[in-house]
Lab assay of single mutants.
Amino acid sequence: AFSSEQLARLKREFNENRYLTERRRQQLSSELGLNEAQIKIWFQNKRA
């Protein structure tokens, strides 16, 4: 489960760009304390 802070950040990123570069995913992973797979799957689900 994502914290409300993490979700807000993911939604902001998604609004700016529906697709993440690998580098951006790595940055978000480290900033949010999530693993890259969690972020990747969140974006895939959000696009679906």
Rank of each mutant, 00 (worst) to 15 (best):
R12C: 11
N35T: 15
I41Y: 10
E5I: 07
R24L: 08
T21L: 03
K40G: 11
F14D: 01
N15W: 07
L28M: 04
K46L: 09
R23P: 08
A48V: 10
R23D: 13
K11Q: 15
Q6D: 04
I41W: 14
R23I: 13
A8M: 09
Q44H: 10
E16F: 08
A8Y: 05
E31I: 06
F14M: 02
R25C: 15
I39M: 03
F43S: 00
Y19P: 04
A8C: 10
E13Q: 03
N15D: 13
Q26N: 07
R24N: 04
Q27H: 07
F14R: 02
S29Y: 03
N17Y: 06
T21Y: 03
S4W: 09
Q26C: 07
G33F: 04
S29T: 05
Q26R: 14
Y19T: 08
Y19D: 07
E13H: 04
E31A: 06
Q6G: 02
L34T: 03
F14L: 03
E31P: 00
A8H: 07
W42V: 02
Q44K: 09
K46F: 12
L10H: 00
Q27I: 11
A8E: 14
Q38L: 14
A37Y: 13
K40R: 12
R24E: 08
A8V: 07
L10G: 01
K46C: 13
N35H: 10
R12N: 07
L20M: 06
L34H: 01
S4A: 14
R23Y: 12
S3G: 04
K11M: 15
E22C: 10
S4D: 14
N45P: 02
Q27P: 02
S3V: 03
E36K: 05
K40N: 14
Y19S: 06
F2E: 02
E13I: 06
W42Y: 07
N15H: 10
F14I: 03
R24P: 01
S29I: 05
F2N: 02
W42S: 00
E16I: 11
N15G: 08
F43E: 02
E31V: 05
L20Y: 02
L32A: 02
N17L: 04
S4T: 12
N45C: 14
I39Y: 01
S30C: 10
